[in-house]
Design a protein around this nucleic acid. Sequence first.
DNA 1: TTTACTGCAAAATTTTTGCATTAAC
DNA 2: GTTAATGCAAAAATTTTGCAGTAAA
Lengths: 142, 142
Amino acid sequence: MIISKKQAFQDFASAKGLKSTKQRDIILDSFLSCHQHLTTEELYLKLKTDNPNIGFATVYRTLKLFAESGIAREIQFGDGQTRYEHMHAGEHHDHLVCTRCGAIVEFENETIEKLQSEVAAQHGFTIKNHKLELYGYCVKCS
Amino acid sequence: MIISKKQAFQDFASAKGLKSTKQRDIILDSFLSCHQHLTTEELYLKLKTDNPNIGFATVYRTLKLFAESGIAREIQFGDGQTRYEHMHAGEHHDHLVCTRCGAIVEFENETIEKLQSEVAAQHGFTIKNHKLELYGYCVKCS
DNA sequence: TTTACTGCAAAATTTTTGCATTAAC
DNA sequence: GTTAATGCAAAAATTTTGCAGTAAA
């Protein structure tokens, strides 16, 4: 799982003629080991503990690369912070966001996905990806 | 239609003890007459022509109020700009976004809405609102 | 070597706020 | 008179970029 995403990024990197660097490896490992929706800053801070030599800009640019390569995707929950999460090839998940405590639950629903394709087709759109977020209160907060 | 939203905001305003001002009226009319997804800046520039005396901060704060009152909602298409659109009481529409030419098509789908509620219920969430965006190429661009 | 990458700091964007003044109640 | 709203400009918060030095191919 993790190995294959690592591989996927390495393939992307070599196809693009990117160089392999220590920093990118560290960022990649850290990103892959962290199963959350991270902002650039969060990942940067997380890394800085063990790698005080890595700069914010490198993390920023590397996360952009991850998104470009397809192993990550940018998401925005409307709080003004861009987050990155793992992108699982083929599959897709959406989010339930608690606007009180900030809890985020991921879910998948094939029927919804199918309906989305239908709607898109009706309008002549070719869909590359989508974003579905449900906002409200979680069990604890409601 | 427009009248009722105007009314809705006025009700909200009086319930909250907000004062009625010329600026807010102008911003409200302008916002309601414009059937697009506007950023604060766009609306501000649009207004400035006829009302050079209205400040950006007022537009900014007023749009926030609109969102709070329920007659508008904030949306983000991932380009780093917050937009506002009309919120139609009860109904809800989602977006098809062309990532090449920027075209935006609105759509509604009751079945999807229903499935969303089911998913939310399964996870114990009480949903206040949601956001569904499909990204891809429109007819012309694909 | 040649080309890309890094780190820092500066710049550009956007969003948000403080405050004196003005207008509404 | 009180209280809230406005406009300006300044501050925060994010995202993005320039560039000299460094490291990979």
